[in-house]
């Protein structure tokens, strides 16, 4: 990713790195700031978790449970999702289609 005429002098490496970083430095700093904020919070939280590994390691299938949940508790979001997909379809086709005539 370094510049094309790579010169392997120390100065040359520093210059190339600098040129690469210059437009990205703000993004990096902001991303690191964000990461730091999140990580500090994540590591200083006592997350609740189960005491032991779930039993029955062989049969870890969640499919049935998920299916039941989708059609009981989360039937409303499921239905809304149907409308979402329909409108995404419509919107995407409308936007992507070329000239009518």
């Amino acid at each position: 990713m370094l510049n094309k005429e790579v010169s392997f002098t120390l100065m040359g490496v520093i210059t190339s790195v600098y040129n690469y970083l210059k437009p990205r430095i703000l993004g990096m700093m902001v991303a690191f700031l964000f990461l730091a904020v999140i990580l500090v919070a994540v590591f200083s939280t006592a997350w609740p978790s189960l005491d032991q590994i779930p039993q029955n390691l062989e049969d870890q299938s969640n499919i049935q449970g998920i299916g039941v949940l989708i059609f009981t508790e989360f039937v409303v979001p499921f239905e809304i999702l149907a409308i979402v997909l329909l409108s995404a379809l419509m919107g995407a086709i409308y936007m992507a289609k070329g000239d009518d005539k």
């Binding site: 997350w47 189960l50 779930p54 998920i66 979402v84 995404a88 995407a92």
Partner: peptide, 24 residues
């Protein structure tokens, strides 16, 4: 880690949403 399936259901929904979003 919570032993609760809601998160996985949510993830499924969200993946579908992400697909729709990408399409648009």
């Amino acid at each position: 880690y919570n032993g609760d399936l809601t998160g996985q259901v949510f993830t499924l929904f969200s993946i579908a949403l992400a697909a729709a979003e990408a399409a648009i």
